[in-house]
Every structure is written in structure tokens, then in C-alpha cells.
């Protein structure tokens, strides 16, 4: 295979912004609705997913010539679920409170479309290191959306930032109320929709780029 210079930075930024998994590929929505009520849980979830995606892409990509294509989904899932179990155990051992709040959603990273999607569409066709950075980029893109949504939901729904009250009492005395809808799942839907709208209407994004 001829040596090509791979632009790792471009791979990472593409995952974070241009082909953002939530805002552009619309993957991983269910966990984005479920864990974004608070900033702390969504940060941990973002980190967990970034690690799992990066390493699963790395491992699958290094095995890509050995995996028979008719059983590849099973092999991929075996790798992903091993990684998810490790992550889950680490969280339970060191961040027990947050792990309890995330409850089933760490385990459900296995079914998160982003992980399998990157494995299928990128890791099986690219070299290990490129796949690793692709996993990092997509994981960070997912985390970016999660943290933005969680920031808005926590601020508007509970008046808090990372668990601290940041809206002063005199505003509440003046008649301000927290927006209860933001604590419910539909609030996340609205915010994700508005974010996608904002992203698509920023200049330079509106036209889909053609790939060589």
C-alpha cells in the first residue's frame, strides 16, 4: 500500500464540527435526551463514549483484515461491549454517584449508533491510527452537543450550572420561574433541533460539501 500522508487534525475536526454525529448524522439521540438534564452526567457520558469509540475503532481497524465480513457485526459488538463493560466498571469503582445517575445509559453505549456507525463506516476501511482519531473526533463532537444541551437545560430548567445555583435570588423574587419543560425529554428535542438549525444556518455550512 502506498504511503499517504493522513491529516489527523482534519479527521478530528470533521468529527467535531462538519460531520458532527448528533447534529449532522443524527446518531445517538436517545442518550442525548436521557443524560442531558445535568452538566455533570453529560460530561462523564461524553468522556465515556469518546474513550469507547476511539478504542473500539482502533481495535476493529487493526483487526479489519482478519474479520470475516459475514460475521463482522458480531465481532464488532464483542469488542465494543468488552470496552463498555470496562468503562462501566471503572465508573462504578471511582465515580459511584455519577455512575448511579447515568444508570443504564453507560451500558447502553453498546447500542449507541455512533460507536457501531464509526466502526462500520470508517474503521473497517482505514488504518488504525486514523480510525483512533476518527473515534476521538466523533466522541468529542457528541460530547460537544451533549454539554451544550445540558448547559442550556440545566440553566433554564433548574437555574444551575454544574450543580451550583447561578441565578440570583432577586431574579426569582422579581417573578422569574424555571422552565419546567427543559427538565422533561421534549426540552432536549427542542434544543437539539434549534442547535442543528443554528449550525446549518451558519455561513459556509449551508451547502453540503462534495468529497473527492
Amino acid at each position: 500500500m502506498p504511503e499517504e500522508k493522513i491529516n489527523y487534525r482534519e479527521i478530528v475536526t470533521r468529527g467535531i464540527w462538519k460531520e458532527n454525529p448528533v447534529a449532522y448524522q443524527v446518531l445517538g439521540i436517545c442518550s442525548a435526551l436521557a443524560v442531558t438534564v445535568k452538566m455533570s452526567t453529560s460530561i462523564v457520558m461524553g468522556i465515556a463514549l469518546t474513550i469507547v469509540t476511539a478504542f473500539s475503532s482502533l481495535i476493529i481497524s487493526s483487526l479489519r483484515k482478519k474479520i470475516p465480513s459475514n460475521i463482522r457485526i458480531i465481532v464488532e459488538l464483542a469488542i465494543i461491549s468488552s470496552l463498555v463493560i470496562i468503562t462501566d466498571q471503572v465508573l462504578k469503582a471511582f465515580f459511584y454517584d455519577i455512575s448511579k445517575q447515568l444508570s443504564i445509559f453507560v451500558g447502553l453505549i453498546i447500542t449507541n449508533c455512533i460507536v457501531l456507525g464509526r466502526a462500520e463506516s470508517f474503521a473497517l476501511a482505514n488504518r488504525p491510527l486514523a480510525s483512533f482519531f476518527d473515534g476521538i473526533g466523533n466522541g468529542l463532537g457528541y460530547s460537544l452537543v451533549l454539554v451544550t444541551v445540558a448547559f442550556l437545560r440545566e440553566l433554564l430548567g433548574a437555574g444551575k450550572f454544574l450543580g451550583f445555583n447561578i441565578i440570583p435570588q432577586f431574579i426569582f423574587d422579581a417573578g422569574y420561574q424555571n422552565m419546567g419543560l427543559m427538565v422533561l425529554a421534549p426540552g432536549a428535542f427542542f434544543i437539539i433541533g434549534l442547535l442543528v438549525w443554528l449550525k446549518n444556518s451558519l455561513p459556509g455550512i449551508s451547502k453540503p460539501e462534495t468529497y473527492k
Binding site: 420561574q177 422552565m179 419546567g180 419543560l181 427543559m182 422533561l184 421534549p186
Partner: peptide, 10 residues
């Protein structure tokens, strides 16, 4: 509906 779910107090 938005107000109803957002500000149940009012």
C-alpha cells in the same frame, strides 16, 4: 402547551 409544561405554577 409550551407555557403549560414550562411554567405549571402560572
Amino acid at each position: 402547551a409550551f407555557l403549560f409544561f414550562s411554567y405549571p405554577v402560572s
